[in-house]
Amino acid sequence: MFKILHKKSLAPMVDEMVIDAPYVARHARAGNFVVLRLHEKGERIPLTIADSDYNNGTITLLFQKVGKTTNELGLTKQGDSIKDIAGPLGHPTPIKKYGHCVLVGGGIGTATLFPILKSLKDADNKTTVILGARTKELLVWEDRFRGYSDELVITTDDGSSGRKGLVTEALKEAIERVSVEIVITVGPIRMMKAVSELTKPYNVKTIVSLNPIMVEGTGMCGACRVNIGTKTRFACIDGPEFDGHEVNFQELENRLNFYKKEEEQSYNLFLRKTKRKVTSNETVM
């Protein structure tokens, strides 16, 4: 059992929680995730380790409530426990002194970027961070990011914060203005795809963090397989980060939609059981 030490809401449909998991915290590196199962009948879902505290033995998870499990997770309170947490899993992000790095985050993907940003900064890199959201109140951890970025650009669809527009516009300007060694992007598939397409003609190395459906997360089932440069790779052990210029995004998107019907069924049953009002379940990313 893993105890939830703190929990708070960060934005509509986005929660943050700090969990007591000393062994996971001790080994967590930027880019790692955990797989958790809330209770005996629960599904195993992957969540990125958004931050970790070696001394206190805690990890921080940020999650967006999109379906049954994440909404159920949203109902937990400080002091409750999560039945199973396994990790840290996945390859850590390769951290070294690159020079100038641009980090592009969208929606909940920004959470994943934070530990990467921290590590890159510790490795003496110059960092530009571009965070995108639909609207101001969906932006999370802006202050934390500011502390580690040489330059922080916020973009919103409606212009309620930062510049109005898409992250790709800000990225294009950055690439044209300075010499960028590497772009790391985490967010909705369409955004990562757009970023990869944008950087390709500039020949800038681009790392994307993929989020296929996973089951156990230890390389034993193949559920998380993705197509990278025509090779099949398992995101949980070979990734989740891959070269954005090689990813077959269309296939990933197809596979993510595979259980749509069952996900809806499960979510609706959950709403009925918890007698909750049907809130809008639209994606905020």
């Binding site: 009948k41 629960g42 049954k68 069952e262 499960s266």
Partner: peptide
């Protein structure tokens, strides 16, 4: 499923 949360096709 759906008593247990994990689906299979």
């Amino acid at each position: 499923f759906p008593v247990y949360d994990t689906p299979v096709k």
